[in-house]
Design a protein around this nucleic acid. Structure first.
Lengths: 231, 231
DNA sequence: CGCATGTTTGAAATAGGTCAAGTGGCGTGG
DNA sequence: CCACGCCACTTGACCTATTTCAAACATGCG
């Protein structure tokens, strides 16, 4: 196995305060994994034995209900830690991590978690900051689901996605990974039919453009208006 | 100010591993506060300068939307830390903490947070375990809101409440703090009318009994059935 | 080229929200 | 101690956003 390049980690929040030799140590302890779109790094309920860092690609964090329905709790973009059950005192992963596109990640065994926290200055702080942000995001979703109509929720989700995984293209901002109407409905607690109708309508008004599994927002501002300005 | 009794903290998770002298130190650094039902320890958006431990009473964690609607994110029972923005790298409190009944709490200035984490063994671990549990709970709520109908959501909330703050009474399990239909609707993303209709119906079937601002579940098992078994 | 997967769209059905009106307990102040 | 007013609660009637059902229609991969 060839050595991983140190530049992979240098600029990521959890490792920002570390020097080259520390990063070297961390990398030498890491195992790389690559998975295809649609596959999972781990499943909900699996014993949590490792924690991960996503280097490339996008992950959908999916929860399954007992009766088979699924809900997408959030997305993870490259550069972020995930599967950190270890850090939160959990024995099993609370959700499944499905690759939205081809993904490359590193992982470490859980025993390293405490070591990282103890040894590397800033690792704990930066990490729990990320946890705080996820808490916030989930909070916002709860509020949205509780107070807003479907149209606004879908608008919010698209805005959030272009913020987290948007790529500038000539005619607007494109969501940088494959995403279906069904996916969007799993994020908003609605049906693919309703999402389809909404996107069709928005496409007619020139707010979005979409192909199969691909969405581009052409008029973000219009979408903000539709979203009820909650973000 | 008279000295606080050490037994207050001895059996709470964050302090479980500490000895008497350590607990003494912690208590000596704490300030007690008492607030009335309906008042708030802090408001959403306030600069986060302290973190709290609830000794007695029940708190509603409330988020306000820009347009004045409110959503109850979760409840906090006595013995739990709250307002721990500090530990998650946040500069302001993300929600308002309203007392559901008369509340007694201790607080410490934020600077103590890092000290606690560094000095007291087990404090960080136990605390982040609590964060993990809240994440879980929020997750569950998101899934519920996304997949279940109002009736099931309300059933779930009642079950959760009797778990977290239930008190055995002759005719069932009572929620140990005042709670209105409006409160329940703020927790489930519905209207007080719908909640009222549901409770009326359940009261007719003998599943619950309720007075003004008081709910008792008489047939928890029936409620589990109605909840769709997600919990 | 054909199948699987994703998408569109109409029509019918409904859960639950909105509107409106009224009841009843309870604490306060006279 | 009583009456007043507030606040929580209830209930009916109506209305509509969204889901459900059903049926085609694209698109792209093997």
């Amino acid at each position: 196995m060839k050595k991983l390049d140190e530049s992979l980690l240098t600029n990521l929040p959890p490792f920002r305060k570390l020097d080259r030799s520390q990063i070297r140590q961390i990398l030498d302890a890491a195992t790389p994994v690559r998975i295809n779109a649609g596959d999972a790094f781990f499943d909900q309920g699996d014993t949590a034995e490792k924690f991960f860092l996503l280097l490339d690609g996008h992950i959908r964090v999916v929860k399954m209900t007992p009766d088979g329905e699924q809900v997408i709790a959030l997305h993870i973009a490259s550069g972020q830690l995930f599967g950190i059950a270890a850090g939160l005192g959990k024995a099993t992963y609370p959700a499944t991590s499905v690759a939205a596109d081809e993904c490359l990640a590193l992982y470490w065994p859980n025993v390293m978690w405490d070591r990282f926290v103890a040894t590397y200055d800033g690792f704990a702080t930066e990490t729990y900051k990320v946890v705080g942000e996820r808490l916030d995001e989930m909070n916002k979703r709860i509020v949205e689901m509780a107070t807003q109509q479907v149209e606004q929720r879908v608008a919010c989700v698209l805005l959030r996605l272009i913020n987290q995984a948007g790529r500038k293209v000539p005619d607007g901002i494109e969501i940088d990974f494959p995403i279906t109407r069904q996916n969007i409905s799993d994020m908003t607690g609605t049906t693919l039919h309703t999402v389809s109708r909404l996107l069709s309508a928005w496409e007619k008004s020139g707010i979005v453009a979409s192909k199969r599994s691909k969405v581009t927002v052409t008029e973000p501002h219009q979408l903000v208006l539709l979203s009820g300005a909650t973000g």
